[in-house]
């Protein structure tokens, strides 16, 4: 009787772990998305905000425009739609700004000024420095009249 109690105490938790593994295996075998591997698709701006460099490269290499505006679902960043560069700045991701520039994002003087002001607003010095590496000719750093979208 006492041994049965001990055997049950010892075996039940591992059997639950096996059950969860079985769900993963069966769901995958059925072609579904098992627990731990469920997610959703991201827009380019969401990928930029969520430090998903792999997805940013995949999307841009497959022809997605890195300069267009894309919607963002609630909770990613406090804005409904942004360009990928704006999303990267809003998320304070200097490395993402660099990656987007590598993958074809472009800024004209007025666009750069907006981004620079957004970056100053976030207080992320590394993002500000990264943007300054891509300062276009004739760009000014004044933030007068610029409001942040997030």
């Amino acid at each position: 009787m006492t041994r049965s109690l001990l055997v049950i105490a010892c075996a039940i938790p591992p059997l639950i772990a096996v059950g969860i593994s079985a769900v993963i295996v069966v769901t995958a075998a059925a072609g579904g998305s098992p627990p731990f591997w469920r997610g959703g698709t991201l827009t380019l701006s969401e990928a930029a905000a969520l430090r998903d460099q792999g997805e940013v490269t995949r999307l841009t290499v497959s022809g997605t425009d890195p300069n267009a505006v894309y919607p963002l679902r609630p909770g990613v960043i406090a804005a409904g739609a942004l360009t990928p560069l704006e999303a990267a700045v809003g998320a304070r991701r200097a490395e993402m700004v660099e990656l987007l520039m590598l993958r074809g994002a472009r800024v004209d003087p007025s666009g750069w000024r907006r981004l620079h002001c957004f970056a100053l607003g976030t207080g992320a010095a590394d993002v500000v420095q990264m943007l300054e590496r891509y300062t276009p000719a004739n760009a000014t750093a004044s933030c007068e009249g610029i409001t942040t979208p997030f």
Binding site: A17, V18, S21, I24, P34, F36, W37
Partner: peptide
């Protein structure tokens, strides 16, 4: 089963 779920990963 445990090995299979890890292999899937």
């Amino acid at each position: 089963l445990l090995a299979a779920s890890i292999s899937y990963g």
